[in-house]
Design a binder for these strands. Structure first.
Lengths: 216, 216
DNA sequence: TGCGTGTGATCTGTGATATTTTATACCATG
DNA sequence: CATGGTATAAAATATCACAGATCACACGCA
């Protein structure tokens, strides 16, 4: 708790900035399941007062990335196999819908953009590049122009992010060949092969839970 | 705006109470699409200060029941066919998952409870009983013990609630025979017939969008 | 007379801060 | 060693100050 994990923000649209900073921190796996956070600490780290942080945190609670404890402190939801299974089936169901819509509208430029994302240099540290994975999926999903389902999927990834924190800490990177399914998806997008794209996306989602739900 | 549409709340856990009151108001169809709401007005009606209302409203925005406008006022999202279609496909996908889980755990008492809900006296006014419909579905879904998907579905219903406001105003009740599919679902639950239950639920969801998306 | 424009009053949300309530940890006392 | 009370720290709420948007209305010009 001593050294800040999240960047400072500047002084306009404070609530949004605070939310963005925390959102980014979650997708980066900066928070560990079970960890507790305090409004004052966050406010100090972000360089604002409590008010904007409180509203940002309220949104994160609504999205399931944080939970209120009976003692009125906030905590990152602890690791829980049932929740993880739900997360997986919800992601499979909703991201399939987004992919379907996205494939109605996607164009060459976006596909090129996706290729650029996955071909970007991997981080040398050997840890899986969570941001790269996030960018790949959401660049694709945003093509759906969805205003209902896309926010739900964002919320799911936010919950998933805390779990990834553990993966990052405990696993070597080489064991997660995430780019394989990403390449399959891109190929299917080029061929406009819906079945194949759906299959590869499902495999990619399954993959990302393998380390967390080994029994499946 | 002169006469309050929402009940006052009592003085503990104000934020939760405020949220509950607003949530209830939405499922009751108390707010119309496009309507704007003000923090101060809501706070006055609820008998609290702005702070708890602000946090409750933040949650509703996160859930999509309210949106921030560029001019920083709050409004109930206007009617929009695309959003409605998304709402429908998301409901079909997620509520199927909840039903599946619920059928693993449901017992006789709950089924009896469901029968009691739909056999309760319809309101005499001739308007469709939104609360009864809500209670039927969520009594069922809560059996799933879901902590991830259930909140997502709550959010979907919250968005749907504003649209229902229009239905309530413009349509006679007799045209919506919602109890028919509910009875089919109960019968399927008794037989533990998953296929049939899923089919009836899907039909029920389709039905509830019929008036809003006539072309489908 | 009719239409556009400007101006001010009155809304709005935002952010900060003071006050109250509640939980928890610690220490004294039995 | 257990128990109870107190001190402390945190969150919850209320209140305040401020900036910006909207709306109505009056004024000036055609």
């Amino acid at each position: 708790m001593s050294q800040p994990k999240i960047a400072r923000i500047d002084q306009s649209k404070l609530r949004e900035s605070a939310y963005d900073a925390l959102h980014e921190a979650f997708t980066r796996g900066a928070f560990a399941p079970g960890e507790t956070v305090s409004l004052r600490t966050l406010a100090d780290q972000l360089g604002t007062s409590m008010t904007p942080v409180r509203e940002a945190v309220r949104r994160l609670v609504a999205e399931g990335a944080l939970v209120d404890t009976p003692s009125r402190t906030l905590e990152v939801p602890p690791l829980d196999a049932d929740r993880m299974r739900e997360l997986k089936s919800a992601r499979l169901a909703l991201e399939a819908l987004l992919l379907e819509e996205a494939m109605d509208r996607i164009d060459k430029d976006v596909i090129t953009g996706l290729e650029k994302i996955i071909s970007a240099p991997r981080s040398e540290t050997g840890t899986p590049d969570l941001k790269q994975n996030y960018d790949f999926h959401f660049t694709l999903y945003r093509q759906s122009r969805s205003r209902v389902i896309l926010p739900l999927v964002e919320a799911l990834w936010l919950q998933y992010g805390a779990f990834l924190n553990l993966v990052v800490r405990e696993q070597a990177a080489g064991e997660i060949p995430e780019h394989i399914h990403h390449e399959e998806i891109i190929a299917a997008l080029r061929d406009n092969d819906r079945k194949s794209a759906q299959r590869s996306l499902a495999l990619d989602i399954e993959r990302s839970f393998k380390l967390l739900l080994p029994e499946s």
